[in-house]
Amino acid sequence: MANTNNQLTIYNSYAFGTLTQEDVQTVHQTIAKDCNESQFRLFMGVAKAADANPLIGEIYPTVYQGKLTWQFGIDYHIRKAKEMDGYMGYDVQVIHENDEFEYSMERAEDGRYYLSIEKYKGGFPLGKPIGGYAMAYKEGFMPFSVLMDIEEVEHYKRSAIGMQKTMWTNNFKDMFKKHMVKRALKAAFGLRFDDGDGEQGEGPAPYNPYERKDITPEADAVAVAEKEKPPLQGNGEEPAVNLLDQARSDMKRKFSQLGITDPADMQSYILKHANPKGSKPTLPELKGLLKIMDMHIAEKAAQEQANDELPV
């Protein structure tokens, strides 16, 4: 009994929201039973900073090979999206090999492209899952879409983390839907919280919705700066570098980092994010595009590093 009282004293500073000291102890004895004391205190600190309730599956820990990781559940993503202005729900669908499915890229009035489902017709037998899509709806915007091939998530079935492998194997379609919805909601509402691990040290700062940086004024500033200096720069000894060629080279390199290699996919990406006024992006448009690509590369790297979309 004395040991229990000591634990409750330690846990007391981590009680938050509607969680009582007993609730926090329950978390430690159930979903966080594999955590040692320091790992548990860190996990509860992360949950508190993110305003995520572990009792209802909004965040959960796992310890693999002595290393703590934490993951945010689908309910947390949905709640945070609902707290943002303009939330109008989402749709998600798994596509099977016997379905009739067609999609296209449509251009909105603002010049940006969005995914349009042209035809979806299913029946029994369904056949094997081959892909899927999720759409998040935000007032005043075209749908934010995620379209995925099944091969993009097959690696979860081979995960070294037992729970992850089990859930993705036994509940594959449910897990696949949640995975797509998370990505769509993040894209639509700029949700900037990520799964993580205890090696991050002090844990995350208190949660704040991501505010996307407006790149337009910066792009305009670049355009003015370029007009004030020669288009070619060099030191007289080394070959001069054309700024537009350099930007195009950077764009190709970043496409490779994003895993976008098909020319048609590249063109769609450019049209969507650079919104060029002409047939080819100008230098200011490319500068803005490169910054957006950096954002997407960072998001892709975080997802690959985590690689731990555990059950929710």
Rank of each mutant, 00 (worst) to 15 (best):
I31G: 01
G278Y: 00
Y76R: 13
A219G: 10
V46T: 10
G127I: 03
K80V: 05
L42M: 10
G45M: 01
G89M: 10
D262I: 03
P231C: 03
I161Y: 09
P230M: 06
M88N: 08
Y90K: 07
N53H: 02
I130P: 05
A247R: 15
I74C: 05
D265I: 06
L115Q: 10
L147W: 04
I117K: 08
V63D: 05
A302D: 04
T216P: 00
P204F: 03
N53G: 08
Y103K: 08
E211M: 13
K300G: 00
Y133I: 10
G259C: 09
M148Y: 10
F144W: 08
M148L: 13
P230G: 14
Q29W: 13
L115C: 06
Y156R: 02
G131E: 09
M142D: 12
E237N: 09
R183Y: 01
P217E: 08
N235C: 00
K157S: 01
Q65I: 10
K287W: 15
K280I: 13
E299M: 05
L68S: 03
A15D: 04
P263A: 06
P125D: 11
D265L: 09
Y114Q: 03
D308E: 09
P54F: 09
F72I: 15
A136K: 05
D91H: 12
Q233S: 14
F16S: 13
Y137M: 04
H179M: 01
P209C: 03
N3E: 04
G201M: 05
G66D: 10
V46D: 02
P54L: 07
P263T: 01
G201L: 08
S256M: 09
L271H: 08
D85M: 02
K157C: 02
T261D: 02
D194W: 15
K280P: 04
L191Q: 04
M135Y: 07
Y113T: 14
F172M: 10
K119G: 01
G162E: 14
M84Y: 06
L191D: 00
K186E: 02
G198Q: 12
A223T: 00
M84C: 14
S116F: 15
N242I: 06
E202N: 11
K227V: 07
M88P: 00
T30K: 14
I56K: 01
G234T: 08
A240N: 15
Q25P: 02
A2T: 12
G201P: 04
G73D: 06
D149A: 10
K177I: 13
G73S: 12
F16G: 11
L42D: 01
M180S: 12
E100D: 13
D262H: 11
Q233D: 13
V224L: 15
R158F: 01
Y60V: 07
N208I: 14
H155I: 00
E211R: 15
Q267L: 12
I297K: 03
F144L: 03
L258M: 02
D195E: 08
